[in-house]
């Protein structure tokens, strides 16, 4: 739900301000790849209506966000491709593919894709965080968006602890990826929490 909320916050921000200054389209592209790799099971496995609906919403809304930022004026006119230039194709995709291949529990296409998607998701926030560090001053809605985008994985960790004790659920790759992902946010959360506590604008060092 936090993940969904962060997407809705971003959509709302783009529609309201008609600007995507401070938003990394490259992060959304990473997520689009994550979703496409992971949700291949839409074609051969049914888990629940909720599960299917969320997958469809995640994929379609993420592609829509990319479309808005890259191609749809007036939002696309504000997209700064020079600032948002983190080369994830080299730094994230390659390593995620290699790690996915090495650490997959079995060498099947769905398993390798799923594993690569976990590793890629864990670092997908990097283009966004790096963009914000260049700009330093973060708009309120952008701050809320990034905070919810980080918080959802933290709540997964709580759920994994519960599931481990309640059902003996084990998911080593998911756990490791989730810890890396949440860890990358710790620094941002600190400055976010401080800005909320003191009621000031979020300014990154």
């Amino acid at each position: 739900m936090l993940h969904l909320m962060s997407i809705l916050l971003l959509l709302w921000k783009l529609k309201k301000s008609k600007s995507c200054v401070g938003i990394s389209c490259r992060m959304q592209e990473c997520y689009a790849i994550v979703f496409c790799l992971r949700y291949l099971d839409l074609f051969y496995q049914f888990i629940s209506v909720y599960n299917t609906a969320m997958k469809v919403v995640f994929i379609s809304s993420t592609f829509y966000l990319i479309f808005l930022m890259r191609f749809q004026p007036p939002v696309s006119a504000t997209y700064d491709r020079t600032a948002d230039s983190f080369p994830y194709e080299q730094y994230l995709l390659g390593p995620a593919a290699v790690l996915g291949f090495i650490s997959a529990e079995e060498w099947s296409i769905p398993e390798i894709f799923w594993t690569a998607s976990i590793w890629l998701e864990s670092v997908s926030i990097l283009p966004q965080l790096i963009l914000l560090q260049q700009l330093r001053e973060v708009e309120n809605l952008t701050a809320e968006f990034v905070a919810t985008m980080g918080a959802y994985r933290f709540f997964y960790i709580l759920n994994w602890i519960y599931r481990y004790f309640a059902e003996g659920y084990v998911n080593w790759i998911g756990w490791l990826g989730g810890i890396v992902q949440t860890g990358l946010y710790v620094d941002f959360f600190y400055y976010y929490a401080m800005s909320k506590w003191y009621g000031q604008k979020l300014v990154l060092p």
Binding site: Q45, I47, S48, N51, F58, N171, G174
Partner: peptide, 10 residues
């Protein structure tokens, strides 16, 4: 069983 682990998370 572990071999039939369903990936029920998003």
């Amino acid at each position: 069983g572990k071999e039939e682990a369903v990936k029920d998370e998003l």
